[in-house]
Amino acid sequence: MNGKRSTFLISALVFGFAFLYVPILLVIIYSFNEGKLVTVWAGFSTKWYVSLFNNDGMIDAAWNSLRIGVMSATLALALGTPAGLVMSRFGRFKGRTMFSGMIAAPLVMPEVITGLSLLLLFVTLEQLVGWPAGRGLSTITIAHTTFCAAYVAVVVQSRLSGMDISVEEAAMDLGAKPAKIFFVITLPMILPALLAGWLLSFTLSLDDLVIASFVAGPGSTTLPMKVFSSVRLGVSPEINALATLIILTVSIMIVIASFLILRSERMRNRAANGSDA
């Protein structure tokens, strides 16, 4: 009976992971296809990568996306870290329910609503106070920072909740100031979560099509917007090549990051065990 159940679970896992990975693998394989048709394998070629790198519009859009991604991930970290800290360490305060609502809601809010509402905010602000003058990279950065900050807050909060509070309390008993406790004790301990939060924000920003389309202006076309307009017409081998590059970059980044996180955790465990002994 147990055997039957584990057979079921194993086949569920095998089918599930095949479902998740086969489409991605096909995109990677067909990016090396010589021919233009998806279904016909016409031999190995890297010519689509060459034509991708000669596509100036695509390269410009990629630069825009990278700049927005780095800026908004960094800003989201600066805003999301205190937000996560507040949620897990500050106890009750006036307006806490609304605060937690403003952190949870961006995670599930349909993107068309977020995009439209931010655009209307920018237009209204421009009418009232003259800022932001026009729309472009800066408005996209603000939009991305807002929803990425919510993700960072959740990551930081869950890290802090799983963390031993006694070290911070000991430091407080010994008379350390709150700011010092945060920078000397809490920050180093949540460093892996901060790295994860930054990377998550960066990839979310790099990937966003809908919100960016609403708040973009002339000359601020991002990579997803470029991809979307060419994908609407069907499969293109150049997009396959781009997709392969994105998938490879992200996978390498994730593997390195999880290696770093694992190592820091192992070192912390060793330190903790050492002090116990």
């Binding site: 998740l20 990975y21 489409p23 991605i24 096909l26 995109v27 067909y30 998806v38 990377l199 998550l200 990839t203 790099l206 990937d207 099509l209 997803p224 991809v227 979307f228 994908v231 069907g234 499969v235 997009i239 997709a243 994105i246 998938i247 992200v250 996978s251 994730i254």
Partner: peptide
């Protein structure tokens, strides 16, 4: 891992 990979590209993969 797929959650980190571009959403747009994962939708695109199904067109082909």
């Amino acid at each position: 891992l797929p959650f980190w990979t571009s959403f747009l590209i994962r939708v695109y993969a199904w067109i082909g």
